[in-house]
Structure formats: structure tokens, C-alpha cells
Amino acid sequence: MSQTLRLVFPQWQGGNNELYHLGAQLLAWLAPEHDGPTEEVPVPKPDGVALACEEGLIARHQLLAQAANARALIDKHNPQSIVVLGGDCLVDLAPFAYLNERYQDDLAVLWVDAHPDIMTPQQFEHAHAMVLGNLLGKGDSAFSGQVKAPINADKVCYVGVNEPTDWEQQRMLQLGLKNIGPEQLREQGSQAVVEWFKATGAKHLAIHLDLDVLDPGQFQSLLFSKPQAGDEFDGIAQGQLTIADVVNVLTAVAKEGEVVGLGITEHLPWSAMALKNMLEKLPLLKKL
């Protein structure tokens, strides 16, 4: 039996978007069959009730409890590796914290994302934009307090971050976080990522894959493809990579070490939800 734990984590409160719940469930259904243990982190289903902002963060206490529950499920299995099917980006907090404790200085982290995920409650009220900062021990104290061994910034590399805000750019520089942006990736291909991983000296790799790193013109199950969004996302960086770009990079770097973590997040299946809502209204199918 595989020593990889598959963790289904339909968390939606971190991005304050109910569709993340369905997105995680669909990821779990779409993923290849698994011969190892599978656990689902208990997450209350969305009920249309607005979430409260607590100490600068939407649904703070729910999110902290869910992260603790995820860690308990991980500790139950003590896996060699973890696949996380989320949910908003915050789902990778407990799994990546565990992996860094297990492999310590022998773990590197590849953060494939259009955004840096290093904000604090002073910049934003959605916790999914803070997960990497928490893992570095630099974020909100309640969340970073769940990270027993913070990840070293020199073991982290972004792929796909583009057009960060002035605050994000300055913070990335302060923390010493390396970024291989879309333009560099187009020019150098996977080689830049492979060279970074080799330079870390690590043998193990954890990969955070936020699907919003993809170009919304080519893949529509993303935040930025929200129907009738209008100007809601003006000024926010959007993904510029293709599916082939992501597959090529991750395949190449995986040849250089052992991938022990893969978190797939931010799947927002707008069309599937529209179809689900339609089915609920049809004769013989609609709810009583």
C-alpha cells in the first residue's frame, strides 16, 4: 500500500467563496485512483450565511480549527508523503508544516502561484492569501503558531508570480524569496527551476499548486473566470501559464528529487455549479 496520504480538504472559508467546497470534491473525483489512505477534513457545508470577520480575518476560528483537524488526521497516519486536494490555499498550512518537520533542512518548497501568499491581516481579511507567510513563521501569530518548524525562505521558490503589489514586492525582497516569473519560464523553460532545486541541496520537494497560476483564457475553473464579474478583479494579478507549462516544470523538477508533497488548490468550477443548480430545479430531480 502507498505511504502517501491523500487529504481531501474542501475548505472554503479561507477565500470566503462557497464554490471552493465543490471544487475540492470534484478534484477528489477527478484524481487518479489511490491505493493508500484517504482522509477528508471535516468542513461545514456552505449554507449561505455570511462569515464573521474576527480579529481582522474572515472565519478565523473556523479556519484554525480546520487546520488543527487536518494536522490530527496527518499525525494519525504519519505519512511519508501527502497529496492535498483543496479548497482554498490555506489547506496547505498543516500538510506543509508537517512535511517540514519530518524532512527539516532536506525539504525544498516550490510555490506555483500567481500570487505570493505572504499577506497579513493588516493587508487583507482572507486567510488564503497568507499561507506561505504563516509557513515561514512570519504571518498571523495564531496560524504561524501551528507551524512548529518554520520553512526557511532560502528553500522556497515561486513559479508564476507576476505583478505583485508594491507591498508584496517589498516583502518578497525582505524575506529573500526567489521568483521565476512567467517571462523567465518562457525564456528558460524548466531549467531555471531545476537549477534552483539543485542549489538548495535538498532531496525532497513539496509543491503548492494554486490553479490560478493558469491563464484564465485557457482554463476557466478559476476565480478570474467568475461569470458577470465585471471589474471585480481589476488590478489583481492573473495567471499566465498554460497547463503544459505547469506539467513540464513539475515533471522536470520531480526527476531531480523525491516529491513528498503536492497541494492542489483554488479550483472554482463555475460551470459545474451552474449545472448543479439547474439540475436541482428540473422535474423529478428538484428538491422538495
Rank of each mutant, 00 (worst) to 15 (best):
207 I>M: 07
223 L>V: 02
280 E>S: 04
10 P>M: 14
174 Q>D: 13
99 L>R: 07
282 L>H: 01
41 V>C: 07
148 K>A: 07
171 R>C: 02
194 V>C: 12
82 I>N: 05
120 T>L: 13
37 P>W: 03
207 I>R: 06
121 P>N: 06
152 N>A: 00
287 K>Q: 01
215 D>N: 13
223 L>M: 03
210 D>Y: 00
196 W>T: 02
88 D>T: 00
246 V>W: 05
180 I>W: 03
168 E>R: 05
128 H>T: 09
58 I>D: 11
198 K>I: 02
200 T>C: 01
89 C>T: 01
74 I>G: 14
201 G>A: 05
83 V>M: 03
162 N>M: 10
79 P>T: 00
75 D>H: 13
264 I>Q: 01
131 V>T: 12
49 V>H: 13
282 L>D: 01
34 H>G: 10
251 T>C: 13
55 E>V: 12
54 E>Y: 09
274 A>Y: 03
242 T>L: 05
37 P>M: 04
116 P>A: 10
150 P>F: 07
76 K>P: 06
67 A>H: 11
175 L>R: 10
117 D>V: 11
193 V>D: 01
157 C>H: 01
11 Q>I: 11
178 K>A: 12
23 G>I: 13
213 V>T: 04
195 E>I: 01
115 H>G: 08
276 K>F: 03
257 G>D: 09
219 F>D: 01
214 L>R: 04
95 P>G: 14
269 P>Y: 03
16 N>K: 08
165 T>F: 09
214 L>D: 06
43 V>N: 07
181 G>T: 11
140 D>T: 07
199 A>N: 00
134 N>D: 15
158 Y>I: 05
25 Q>L: 15
146 Q>L: 14
258 E>T: 15
63 L>K: 01
123 Q>G: 06
100 N>Y: 12
157 C>G: 00
28 A>P: 15
84 V>N: 02
179 N>I: 11
62 Q>L: 14
25 Q>S: 11
250 L>K: 07
228 Q>D: 02
149 A>M: 10
5 L>Y: 04
24 A>I: 11
30 L>G: 10
241 L>T: 11
162 N>R: 12
188 Q>F: 08
200 T>G: 00
145 G>S: 02
119 M>W: 14
14 G>E: 13
4 T>M: 05
35 D>I: 03
137 G>C: 09
101 E>D: 14
159 V>I: 10
70 A>Y: 10
98 Y>T: 08
118 I>W: 12
218 Q>T: 03
18 E>C: 03
77 H>G: 14
286 K>T: 05
157 C>I: 03
115 H>S: 10
147 V>T: 09
144 S>D: 06
49 V>L: 13
225 S>V: 00
287 K>M: 01
163 E>H: 09
166 D>L: 11
82 I>F: 04
72 A>C: 14
96 F>K: 15
49 V>A: 15
109 V>L: 15
197 F>P: 01
197 F>H: 00
246 V>G: 08
87 G>E: 00
112 V>R: 05
117 D>T: 11
131 V>Q: 07
158 Y>G: 04
227 P>S: 06
142 A>H: 06
97 A>F: 09
107 L>C: 05
188 Q>W: 08
69 N>A: 15
49 V>Y: 12
178 K>E: 13
271 S>L: 11
